[in-house]
Design a protein around this nucleic acid. Structure first.
Lengths: 197, 197
DNA sequence: TAAGTATATTAACACTGTTAAAAATATAAT
DNA sequence: ATTATATTTTTAACAGTGTTAATATACTTA
């Protein structure tokens, strides 16, 4: 990597860092070009020397957050036995991560894809994120004849949709009112969907 | 109702009508005070004589759309037998309505409640919309011992979350790519959640 | 040091919601 | 009917948004 590339990457990093901080803190609605640039220590127009537009910048953050989320989930769930138990644990860790950073959830699932349509592969990446995280475990269930293909398929999709819905209603609508209530509902739903205890 | 009130209500109606047209057509992102007012045939500032702010106006539309949606669902499902079969039919009609008007779905579930927090009862109304539409049928299942209380509860919540999630991913993310594929997934999920065929 | 290039900043444009002052209209009283 | 008073509508303005073009600064090389 040439000096020029190193420096350019460093500059991009300053803006990405600033954006990530705002998203984790105040959330998506506090994101603005001037706001990001001020935190990065540059003028607002400088941003456009390193990113096509602000959506481009935000999208780079998505990739970072996904890595971060994946790392978090791995460390939270490594002690669980493989299969449905682990799928449940992964899902709970997934929910936990986004509850901790609602701004990141907004970014992942609420922000219209239309606005980011030029990055189709990344969009697919986001959409399949939970499924990807559980992929190994679903495969385990199939290999060990715990589930057949049709069962696994419907469980996987139902789990996926229910988790997205649960998070949007809790994060975006504050329903139910407390995290405790929310946890109880989630727990019983996971058991129901995954046919556990 | 006094003349003054009639006239005021009429004026509000013009703005509400204009807003509803835009929401059904171009969607939430095309909503702007100037855009609405132009369509209503008035200057942008006139809007503020009849609504506290644009969120107030939008919220009046929510109530209208809910009535419209409920009427649509009632007419689509009246021929179905009561119980789980009817719950499935109601849910499918619910999905059908929002697929037809994605802009209204945005408004219902994606628009942050925070921005409309001053109308808490209405927010609860929206959140419980699907559950309210099915309430009678859930009661039927309990009365006829088709389900016990715990079963009904978890089914109801899972159904609710899964439907919200399914719609957000299909409408906001265009995943899966076709309505046909989407319908198949929805069908199998409804059967799984409601423990049907 | 001077010229040329790359980068950063300011100024400007078109948009957003909202408010205060100005203009137009309708109502009331003489 | 004409004047005076309310009421309602519009225009102008403000503070914000993303983005671009022109200007100013810093750096590199001759």
């Amino acid at each position: 990597m040439s000096n020029k590339e190193i420096q350019e990457q460093r500059m991009k990093g300053y803006f990405i860092q600033a954006t990530k901080e705002i998203l984790k803190g105040e959330g998506l609605k506090s994101i603005s070009v001037r706001n990001i640039s001020e935190r990065a220590g540059y003028s607002y127009a400088t941003l456009y020397n390193y990113f096509k537009d602000v959506k481009d910048l935000i999208f780079e953050c998505v990739v970072d957050f996904q890595d971060e989320c994946e790392t978090f989930i791995k460390s939270e769930t490594k002690k669980y036995e493989p299969g449905l138990i682990k799928i449940k644990a992964i899902t709970k860790a997934y929910i936990k991560y986004f509850i901790q950073y609602p701004g990141i959830y907004e970014l992942f699932y609420i922000e219209k894809t239309t606005d980011l349509a030029h990055k189709q592969p990344t969009v697919k990446l986001i959409h399949n994120f939970l499924n990807k995280l559980c992929e190994e475990e679903w495969q385990y269930c199939l290999n060990n004849k715990i589930l057949n293909s049709a069962e696994a398929s419907v469980m996987k999709e139902t789990l996926h949709y229910a988790v997205i819905g649960a998070l949007i209603i809790y994060i975006n609508r504050r329903q139910p009112a407390t995290y405790k209530e929310f946890s109880i509902i989630v727990e019983s739903q996971l058991n129901y969907i995954l046919n556990l205890a």
